[in-house]
Design a protein around this nucleic acid. Structure first.
Lengths: 172, 172
DNA sequence: GTAATTGCAAAGGATTTGCAACAGT
DNA sequence: ACTGTTGCAAATCCTTTGCAATTAC
């Protein structure tokens, strides 16, 4: 535990200045709140929800209203520095683009809700081929594979299937 | 316009009996409301929201509470006959599995919100390969490609890019 | 008859918005 | 100084839930 950490500055993320630049570019004020919110998001590779961002702000001793967090996240997404996701747990989650691979997708465990990232160059090819076939101009994609992660399987978790036992084939 | 249509039954979808069977299998009552709601969903290949389902029920002269629609959709999804989607417009949308290809994904136009389906067998391969690499047991996937559809492009629509003009590369 | 569903209205949870006080340029 | 942001609380949106009356089996 280094003594320096006691009163050193809050270790601003190296990506923060990109956000500052964006704000200036757009003629928007660079406020303390926006900087701190952005720094929280840039300081982790997790997929944070607004509530979680609020919690981390509290840990830092910052008292920032939820509304401001929502408003800042909107700008961050528009800036292209952050992406929003909906993993189906009821709220949006945010992820900055400097974590791992620039383009990646997600494995979502339906039991423990863990999210793992993966990269698939072939997928980009599929995106191009399919788009061309439909005259579609793609800007981004989103692929989620839902299922059970390795840990949950080891712990013997199984998915209860409540669907029809005898599927659609006998449409008599 | 055929005279027969005037007092013929409401042309029950051929898939309705699968839902009836599911209800019986589960020991659940087969109610009129459940049948009509399911029939509305089975009668189109569109991706309907609860509000839209309610509207079509009104058109048919049926007066069914929203709560019942929500509760029925829950059962339909659990039965495996219907899938729910979140295309990012604020509410869940539902789609039965007898429309086109059994497994398919979606092109979502960010301008006119039109959703086009496509099929990609390679994608299933990717799902398998990636899952195996991570010891993941996949149950389903969801791929959406967002962008501009052909019609919107013809009409000269372009996506306004509001992101950083000079991207991330110069992280000094 | 019994147990489950229905429908209404009220509750719920995430997100948004209105507005007076305030901070950034 | 002027314009835009902040923060609170109230409003909004979709969705869920409680409960008395009703329906399926």
């Amino acid at each position: 535990m280094s003594v320096a950490s006691i009163d050193s500055p809050p270790a601003a993320s190296p990506y923060l200045h990109l956000f500052r630049r964006y704000l200036k570019q757009q003629g928007l004020p660079v406020t303390q709140q926006r900087e701190v919110v952005a720094d929280v998001v840039f300081s982790t590779t997790e997929h944070l929800s607004v509530e979680e961002i609020e919690a981390r702000l509290k840990e830092r001793g910052e008292r920032i209203g939820k509304a401001t967090i929502y408003r800042t996240m909107e700008i961050l997404v528009r800036s292209g520095l952050v992406e929003d996701h909906d993993f189906g747990d009821g709220f949006k989650r945010y992820e900055h683009l400097f974590g791992g691979q620039p383009v990646h997708d997600h494995l979502v465990c339906t039991h423990c809700r863990k999210v793992t990232e993966f990269r698939s160059p072939e997928l980009l090819r599929i995106q191009d081929v399919v788009s061309r076939e439909h005259g579609f101009a793609p800007t981004r994609h989103r692929l989620e594979i839902h299922g059970l992660c390795a840990e949950c399987q080891e712990q013997g978790v199984t998915v209860a299937y409540n669907g029809l036992t005898c599927p659609a084939w006998d449409v008599a």
